[in-house]
Amino acid sequence: MSAFPEQAGAPGATLADPAITKVSIIISKGSLEGIYPGLILANGARMEGIEANVFFTFFGMDAINRARHESIKVATVGNPGLHLATWLGGVPGMSALVTQQMMKSMEKLDIPPIPEFIELIADSGAKLFACKASVDMFGLTREDFIDPLEGIITVGEFYQMAGGGQIIFT
């Protein structure tokens, strides 16, 4: 139990372990299993009243790319967590099949598909950003991204924005 809950401002928090009030989450991977953890962390933060920023970089930008965010797939090749024979992971259609099964289990838990989840997170007040270096590298523009995107920012601006909070890399 906490010694000074009232000073630290949240249930369970103490002076030594202050409550988290702000998180900036980086999403860097473009697979289904690479994107969801960051989204769940962002949504969970907002649900607790914690300020949240989400910074999409490299292939993680597929999650906010209009043309791509509806077709994000589970990586079935080079993914030992699936316990699937390596050759089987490369069979055409395998990625789509595994993705479909995973989406079904998530729907049962009321976890939305990626486009809807991103919208929900934006509506919850979290701010979404794309990484300028990645945008330039892939030759993308603002028009390639979904409307709720707050902006395309540099790494320096990201650190400024993350000031006073925790940074989580996924």
């Binding site: 949504n43 907002r46 009243g49 509506d123 919850s124």
Partner: peptide, 27 residues
């Protein structure tokens, strides 16, 4: 209900839910 279900079925949008209960609507 989850926040997603709340936003879809309570008659109040997710945006408004967070305005009404800024410290976390579901909880």
């Amino acid at each position: 209900p989850t926040i997603r279900t709340l936003g879809k079925e309570s008659g109040v949008s997710v945006k408004e839910l967070y305005q009404l209960f800024p410290k976390g609507p579901a909880k």
